[in-house]
Amino acid sequence: MRRIIWRELTDRKWSLFWYSFAAIVLLWTYAATYKSSVASAQQLLEVVKTYPKALIEAFGLNSLASPSIEEYLNGKHFSFLWPIMASLLALSRAGSQFAGEIQDHSLGLLLAMPLSRIKIFAAKYIAGLITIAMFTGLSTLPVIPLANVYGIETHPHILVAMWILCGLFMWTVYAVGLLVSSFVSHVGRVYALGAGVLLASYIANIVALLNDKVDWLKQISLFHYFDTATVLSTGNISAQTVEVFAGVIVAASAVAAWRFVTRDIHV
């Protein structure tokens, strides 16, 4: 199993490298511009106050005049750009690991080996989790040394909590991606269906914020539970967030594993 995990990580190292590199460069840019941005934030706040409440919450604009770099990063990075990057990486990983390898028939190399399907699934899954842990770590924790370079105070416990929240979110997207990947045989369908689910989830959250009558919609949106604003200001992840993400992860992963073990694979 270790060989498969290592092979998975080696094969896909460049995508992890470039995503992480981009995330670190963005964090560095935010750290470099933090002090000047805060200085001019008061003026911007006057403009933002005229925006609809939903828009302010959706894009984390209420933290523009933030006293801490963590809250500043929420508006700039974690409430919008980071979930897109993480979702792209998680879906591409989930798609290529199963549907992609069925599509190009290369999964047949492993299926012809004396390995049970559950072992193959588990090895790929663990490789996926290692990727998630590395990307989420590299896209949150470098704030500490980068901010230090510019003499900005950070709150490590908040950033560790953010790492955990990011990890849960990306794991959830990965598990949903794997669920789709275990049912289909074309990687394009994983991207289309996975992105469709995420987009629908995102829109549900926005609509719920805009219209109180459909407030319940937010309960079915992953983005409602990915509450970066609260975590980056307090360092606390709500029990509900953990329960919902864990529930989706367990259910999606279990169905994906069952499907992969029992399905016909035409390779």
Binding site: H105, S106, L107, G108, A112, M113, P114, S116, V267
Partner: peptide, 22 residues
């Protein structure tokens, strides 16, 4: 069926290339 250990005794060559081009 569900007996992967048996594949230790089986060598397989597919009609479709299963090789990784990279």
């Amino acid at each position: 069926r569900g007996n992967p250990a048996l594949k230790r005794d089986i060598g397989f060559l597919s009609a479709d290339s299963q090789l990784r081009s990279d």
